[in-house]
């Protein structure tokens, strides 16, 4: 695993993050509804660690990631970021100047490498853009040197830096995107579904590259936003499961997959298709009824109760708080009234 530094304070500490989108109507933009995309999310990430944010579409995982780099402005909450071991600053309230500096340290990687690279710029121009904009290099030749070493780092031939993105395959493009993200020497990389747009056989290239880079650039920290549980299990140190804007379970990867404590986690693990016919056919799959709740009009009590097979009356009325039921060494946060009582199935 990676070099996680548990002793000092976390690199990122998110407290009660909220992002509400208002649906407006008409010329005067009257507010007709509120979508609570992110609704009171708290977590922290240690330096050098990979935290995965997992959930189905519309659960708020992408919005959470975007709030952390202020690509989206949060409605409420704090995001404390320990910038170069100085006193933490709150990303949610920093001014424009600080934000610019911050965005050299925190970088975002997109899902679709076909839309995230400007087709009208060469690979060199794309990768050198953050360097030139932020004046991290003095001149073109220095920029070329940097781009060359960045391309080598992501295992691409530096001689190809004057080609345009259309000359590269999906996997190669995603590596170009990684090189661009790493150009200003960041400490924190938010990777939003970095492999789900790629062919199966090349996904592993990108996953392994991200892992290797974390090892090489000691202290590189990832927030890994994904929906594919097998990929998450392979890639992350800790996992946070989100459902309709809230975290329902958060713990160390092993523990989460072996002994899930939230019925939603159990169902997700059970539903994940696994390329192993014997195992798949042996296990009795849990098929959740219904669909993900509408975040504009969520159910009462626990948002998951209409689909939960363990739901009792209290679940319909009272929202369960996210609480720690683990040990001091291994915290295990879960938002379920019956977390201690239920024995849920994980992987075998």
């Amino acid at each position: 695993m990676s070099d996680i530094d548990n002793s000092s304070r976390p690199l990122v500490e998110v407290r009660d993050l909220r992002k509400y989108f208002e649906a407006t109507h008409g010329l005067l933009r009257k507010v007709v509804g509120t979508v609570k995309a992110v609704d009171g999310v708290s977590f922290s990430i240690q330096q050098g660690e990979t935290l995965a944010l997992v959930g189905e579409s519309g659960c708020g995982k992408t919005t959470t990631g975007r709030c952390l780099i202020r690509a989206v402005d949060p409605s409420a909450g704090s995001i404390r970021y320990s910038f170069d071991n100085a006193d933490p600053i709150d990303i949610a309230t920093v001014d424009k100047h600080q934000l610019r500096e911050l965005r050299r340290s925190i970088r975002l990687m997109f899902q679709d490498p076909y839309s995230s690279l400007n087709p009208r710029m060469t690979v060199f121009q794309i990768i050198s853009e953050p360097l030139l904009i932020n004046k991290l290099v003095q001149n073109q030749s220095e920029a070329r040197d940097r781009v060359q070493s960045l391309l080598q780092m992501v295992h691409l031939n530096p001689n190809k830096m004057d080609r345009y993105p259309h000359a590269f395959s999906g996997g190669q493009r995603q590596r170009i995107a990684i090189a661009r993200a790493l150009a200003p020497k960041p400490r924190f990389l938010i990777a939003d579904e970095p492999v789900s747009a790629l062919d199966v056989s090349v996904q592993a290239q990108v996953l392994n590259l991200l892992k290797d880079l974390q090892h090489e650039l000691r202290g590189l920290t990832y927030l890994f936003v994904a929906h594919n549980l097998s990929v998450v299990k392979y890639q992350s140190d800790r996992v946070a499961i989100m459902y309709v804007g809230k975290i329902v379970e958060l713990t160390v990867t092993e523990e989460l997959f072996l002994t899930p404590k939230h019925p939603y986690t159990e169902a997700l693990i059970s539903a994940a298709p696994d390329p192993e016919p014997r195992a798949v056919r042996r296990k009795k799959r849990i098929v959740l009824a219904g669909e993900v709740a509408n975040p504009a009009d969520p159910p009462s009590g626990c948002y998951f109760h209409p689909r939960c097979r363990y739901a009792k009356d209290v679940c319909r009325t009272t929202e369960p708080p996210l609480r720690d039921i683990g040990t001091a060494q291994q915290p295990h946060q879960v938002a379920c009234h019956f977390a201690e009582e239920l024995t849920l199935r994980g992987i075998e």
Binding site: G171, S201, V202, A204, S230, K233, I347
Partner: peptide, 19 residues
């Protein structure tokens, strides 16, 4: 090349190159 959900599965090996 596909990560699997089973316990103890920790290594994936990509196919080199691209389609």
């Amino acid at each position: 090349s596909i990560p699997k959900l089973q316990k103890g599965h920790t290594l994936v090996e990509p196919i080199k190159g691209a389609v």
